[in-house]
Each structure stands twice: as structure tokens, then as C-alpha cells.
């Protein structure tokens, strides 16, 4: 279902940005963890803001590069002048996108666990569970973000619209969630952003409230990715 030739190309084209952002994320979480802060507190100090922003940068830029910019520039013509189906192109790009995001948070979780272990000399299994869930949450949040951006990449012919619309939606969600942190007056803004579905306090307090929210985020991702595939296979391409 995926084209290995295209996958190699895609990895080559997107590797450097992924390395930089994954590296920065892992370095930051290590820095915070190595100060000896309890894992529960890293939720509020670190996880509620920074990783969302960093991965959003990756999602917005990469989603455009995966489809729309290749249609915009016309390079997609060369892929589609070979017996590779459009669906295969979409599935390959989606596989890369989801896979790279998953790996990003696997590394980030690994870095957190490792730094904690080094800083404290020991780590208990409930802490590990919290770290894994915090990162899984970021992954499903990014499933939703990347699905939305990928959909715009499959719909629009021009890169500028993808960045404006996809980036605009994701940026607005993040902005609303950050605004909501500034005191009581702005708290209602929480209700307008999907970032709130990444329920950090529920995870750190080990309630089970976060589970349905994860499912909703993953659902947004699944639906937008499926619609993207249909849109890309059915539409006119100016190549």
C-alpha cells in the first residue's frame, strides 16, 4: 500500500526539520527533568505549552511539503507520470507523517524517562506511566492537528492557502489554549479549542477522564485523514 521509492524521497526531504524539532523537544524535557522536579509537576510546567507549539511548527510546514507544495510547484507530475496511484501517494505520505510524529514523542518520552532516572537515581512505574500517557496525549493531539493540516494540503493547489488555512486553524487552537491560561477572565476560551482535549491534570492525577478525550482527538485525526485520501484521489490536479 505504500511506495518505497516515494517514502525514501519523503524521508530525505523532511528529515532535517524533524531532527531539529525532535532534538529541541527532547533536550528541553531533559533539561526540566534533570532539575529533579516531580513528574506530576512537569505536566503544568512543560507539557501544557511547549511541545504543542514545537510540533505544530513541524505539522504546518510538513503537511504543506507532503502534498500541496508538490502540486503547486508541479513536481507531483513526475510521481504521477509513473504507475503509482494517487491513493498510494496519499497513504505513503500519511504513513510518514503519522510515523514521524509517533517517533517524535517516543523519543521525547524516552528522554524524559532517562533524565528522570539519571537525576533521581531511580524511577517508579507510575511515573513512567504518566510520562508515557503525557506523550501519547501529545501524539493524539498531533494526530488531530496533522489530519486537519494534511486535509488542507490535499484540497488546495497553492501552498499559501494550506499554510493560511491549516496553519491558521492549528494556530488559533493553540492561541486559545494559551489565552485560557491567563487568569479567570479568559478561562472560557478553553471551550473553543481541541487542545483542551489533551487533559494533563486528568493524566497526572491518574483519573480516567482523559481516555475519551484521547479517543475524540484520534477520531478527528482519523476522519480528516480519510477525507484527505478521498479528496486527493478525486480532485483535479493542475500538473
Amino acid at each position: 500500500m505504500i511506495s518505497t521509492t516515494l517514502m525514501k524521497q519523503t524521508i530525505k526531504a523532511n528529515f532535517s526539520l524533524w531532527v531539529i524539532l525532535t532534538g529541541v523537544q527532547a533536550a528541553m524535557v531533559s533539561l526540566i527533568a534533570s532539575t529533579g522536579i516531580p513528574v506530576q509537576s512537569t505536566g503544568q510546567i512543560y507539557y501544557n505549552m511547549l511541545p504543542g507549539l514545537l510540533s505544530a511548527v513541524y505539522v504546518i510546514i510538513t503537511s504543506n511539503k507532503l502534498i500541496a507544495s508538490q502540486v503547486d510547484k508541479g513536481t507531483m507530475a513526475y510521481i504521477l507520470s509513473t504507475p503509482v496511484k494517487r491513493l498510494k501517494v496519499a497513504v505513503t505520505q500519511i504513513t510518514f507523517f503519522i510515523g514521524s510524529l509517533f517517533l517524535m514523542f517516543v523519543i521525547s518520552a524516552g528522554a524524559h524517562i532517562l533524565s528522570d532516572y539519571i537525576a533521581m537515581g531511580d524511577i517508579n512505574s507510575s511515573d513512567i506511566q504518566i510520562i508515557l500517557l503525557l506523550n501519547l496525549g501529545l501524539f493524539v493531539l498531533n494526530m488531530a492537528f496533522s489530519g486537519i493540516c494534511f486535509l488542507t494540503s490535499c484540497i488546495f493547489n497553492l501552498s499559501k492557502y494550506v499554510v493560511a488555512v491549516g496553519g491558521g486553524i492549528v494556530g488559533a487552537f493553540l492561541l486559545l489554549s494559551i489565552m485560557a491560561m491567563f487568569g479567570e477572565t479568559f478561562q472560557y476560551m478553553k471551550n473553543f479549542t481541541i487542545v483542551s482535549l489533551y487533559d494533563i491534570s486528568s493524566i497526572t492525577e491518574t483519573s480516567s477522564n482523559f481516555i475519551w478525550k484521547f479517543i475524540v482527538l484520534a477520531g478527528i485525526g482519523a476522519v480528516t485523514y480519510i477525507v484527505s485520501m478521498v479528496a486527493f484521489t478525486k480532485r483535479d490536479l493542475p500538473l
Partner: peptide
């Protein structure tokens, strides 16, 4: 595409 060779009107390479 197995049977077709193509030169696009606009040239822009990957």
C-alpha cells in the same frame, strides 16, 4: 502510465 511517456508543459523537478 506503464505505457505512456510524458513531458509536462511546466518543468519543475523534485
Amino acid at each position: 502510465k506503464k505505457y505512456v511517456g510524458y513531458i509536462p508543459g511546466e518543468i519543475s523537478f523534485p
